[in-house]
Nucleic acid binder design. Structure first.
Lengths: 144, 144
DNA sequence: CTAAAAGTTAAAGTCAACTTTAAGTCAAGA
DNA sequence: TCTTGACTTAAAGTTGACTTTAACTTTTAG
């Protein structure tokens, strides 16, 4: 498979695939006449990279994960640790996103006189509480 | 309040605050002897900016949202639309994160002979299905 | 055979959101 | 008064993940 087809099938640009090679995410493939030829299985690897990258993994993280499973062996402790850390991170993401969703939904339906007041109070009393409270012994009232 | 105190109370660097001014997120404040002096209420605005930015809003989005509520008036249709769009986006984030969490948890406990095979099958059959399926009429089997 | 499409490289460019640097000016305490 | 620390600016640097460009070669369809 040529680089163009690999790119097409994985939804990336050829430049991205070459870039992955330079940063060590993809091995340099066999070449004919100077041009890269990929085996079919490379698709899976690239798709996995794309998925992980869209999930917010950095390319370095992805490299770590993929190297962890390079050896066709059952999952090792290093990989487990990585996975556990990432799961915790993802859980935090989910929690914060749910907070934000709640905040936005509240703002859409609340009956504050002015949105500005509402936002400021809401922010102080809820999600921003952590920031301001750790800095000053500030008491916030419930908004709206 | 001098810029250093504002920075300290909001957990940002002074350079970030000056940067927010240059991009129009913060109004240029009153000055004495060339130095910026902020009123207390600016803290709320900066905290709000920090929160939104940590939630993944771009500074341009934040500017839009803040401009939307600049006029001390109840929430307008423009702002509503923005909020609705953002809620949908956040919902997608939550869903994908939950998928990723499930994937990682599966990988931690599955009994595949090799993790590599497991990942490839999992990826194809679940989360990556969308990518490959839209490109080729590929059928994937359940992993592990 | 030839023209166009697709491939190659190294190096520079892009984007957001800042930070750092250089070269100063201002403020506060001893 | 002097010194230190905080402030000022404009401009350049940083980071990650690519993309674009320029100049060229290889492959493929007609």
């Amino acid at each position: 498979m040529k680089i163009g087809e690999l790119a097409g099938r994985t939804g990336l640009n050829t430049s991205a695939i070459r870039y992955y090679e330079t940063v060590g995410l993809l091995a340099a493939p066999y070449r004919t006449g100077g041009q890269r030829r990929y085996p079919d299985e490379t698709i899976y690897r690239v798709l996995l990279i794309r998925f992980a990258s869209e999930m917010g993994f950095t390319l370095d993280e992805i490299k770590l994960f993929l190297n962890g499973l390079r050896e066709d062996a059952p999952v090792g402790p290093r990989w487990r640790k990585l996975a556990h850390r990432k799961i915790e991170e993802v859980e935090r993401t989910i929690q914060r996103s749910q907070q934000l969703k709640a905040l936005l939904e509240h703002l859409l339906q609340c009956r504050c006189a002015t949105l500005r007041v509402c936002v400021e109070r809401l922010s102080l009393s809820r999600d921003l509480k952590q920031f301001s409270d750790t800095r000053r012994g500030r008491k916030a009232t419930m908004p709206c």
